[in-house]
Amino acid sequence: MKHDFWINIINKLKRGESLDSSLLLNDKKAPSVDLQKDVEKIWNMIQYKASSFNPDKEKAWEIVNNHISEKVKCITISFQWIYRSVAVVILLIAISSLYIINHSDKECPVVFQYATLNGKSKIALPDGTQVWLAPHSEIIYANDFSPENRNIEIKGKAYLEVKKDSLHPFFVNVDQSLVKVYGTSFSINSTKEELVVSLLSGKISFQKTPIDNPFWINPGEAAVLDKSTGNAFIENTDAYFNALWAQEKLKIEKKSLSEVVKYLNQWYDVDIVLADNLKDKYKYTFTITTEQLDEILRMMSRINPMEITYDKKNVSIK
């Protein structure tokens, strides 16, 4: 089918490969050589334009936040940040679905939902707390949130730097659990299988439910809740690594390929499978800021020979 050729072409471009038209010349249904060259030029131009795109998310958030008055009863705001092009879709930033759900006098939460194909969103709360949200994650808080009333809900994956206030604890509701914070940096990762709360600095307590006894967590520890069994426990962890994805840059210094893959998996939220014979091979030093995964992998493959295969969210290197 002609459609299959375009899928083939798009997959080649996504992998950073040049189009080899000679492979298609014998098939009458194949796109013409000139058309394929035009598509490749357009693709390269799009990637070049998109590579310099760096949206000012904090400014956008400030504008939206300033438009929310205290009299608003219930608002749902959905943000979708799409950083790079997919196939021939160039670039889209959508701020959508701003609407009033309820006109009654009853107050209900203001819901901020962020969804990205990659990247992260940073939110500054009214009390000075900073929250980083991973793709497809949410933050929810009520209209009356203030430095004296600090209560939010997180869905998905987040990293928080909570403004210290010994008189007014900061509460985070995640699933059915409750985290009580006293001025702290920590990460939350809630999946279908488990909930992990990792502490970098400060002091927090964790409760499976608001009526359960709290677990106290020290820096370098994590509270883990197994959702299939309901069991919760404290374990030692690399809290910095768990929050790595929220940092401004990733610095790799003389790391083996297996170590690089470990960091790339965390940074890009992917699953890279590395062949056993390559695990202890090669050493890399580089810094990542806004580069896409395929850019980094192409750079690595130019330095050392390796075969890279993409399958949706999974990547294999051999």
Rank of each mutant, 00 (worst) to 15 (best):
His3Val: 15
Trp6Val: 09
Asn8His: 15
Ile9Ala: 09
Ile10Glu: 13
Leu13Lys: 07
Lys14Gln: 11
Ser18Met: 06
Ser18Tyr: 06
Asp20Asn: 15
Ser22His: 14
Leu23His: 02
Leu25Phe: 11
Asn26Gly: 11
Lys28Pro: 09
Lys29Thr: 14
Asp34Ile: 10
Lys37Gln: 13
Lys37Ile: 13
Glu40Lys: 08
Ile46Thr: 14
Ile46Pro: 09
Lys49Ile: 15
Ala50Gly: 07
Asn54Ile: 13
Pro55Phe: 08
Lys57Gln: 15
Glu62Gly: 04
Val64Asn: 07
Lys73Met: 15
Cys74Leu: 02
Val86Met: 03
Val88His: 10
Val89Pro: 07
Val89Asp: 14
Leu92Phe: 09
Ala94Arg: 11
His103Arg: 12
Ser104Val: 11
Val110Phe: 14
Ala115Lys: 12
Lys122Thr: 13
Ile123Tyr: 02
Leu125Ser: 00
Asp127His: 08
Gly128Val: 01
Val131Met: 00
Val131Cys: 01
Leu133Arg: 04
Leu133Asn: 02
Leu133Thr: 03
His136Lys: 12
His136Arg: 09
Glu138Trp: 01
Ile139Ser: 04
Ala142Gln: 05
Phe145Tyr: 11
Pro147His: 01
Gly156Met: 00
Leu160Lys: 01
Val162Trp: 01
Asp165Ser: 02
His168Leu: 07
Phe170Asn: 01
Asn173Leu: 13
Asp175Gln: 10
Ser177Glu: 06
Val179Met: 00
Lys180Ile: 13
Phe186Gly: 01
Asn189Cys: 12
Asn189Trp: 03
Ser190Phe: 03
Ser190Asn: 14
Glu194Trp: 01
Leu195Ile: 06
Val196Arg: 05
Ser198Ala: 03
Leu200Met: 02
Gly202Arg: 05
Ser205Pro: 03
Gln207Thr: 06
Asp212Gly: 05
Pro214Tyr: 10
Asn218Leu: 12
Gly220Ser: 03
Val224Tyr: 11
Leu225Val: 03
Asp226Trp: 02
Ser228Pro: 06
Asn231Ile: 14
Asn231Leu: 09
Ala239Ser: 02
Ala243Phe: 00
Trp245Phe: 06
Lys251Ser: 00
Lys262Arg: 04
Leu264Cys: 10
Ala275Asn: 15
Asp280Ala: 12
Ile288Thr: 09
Thr290Tyr: 14
Glu291Phe: 11
Gln292His: 15
Leu293Tyr: 06
Leu293Ser: 08
Glu295Asp: 15
Met300Glu: 08
Ile308Phe: 12
Val315His: 08
Ile317Ser: 12
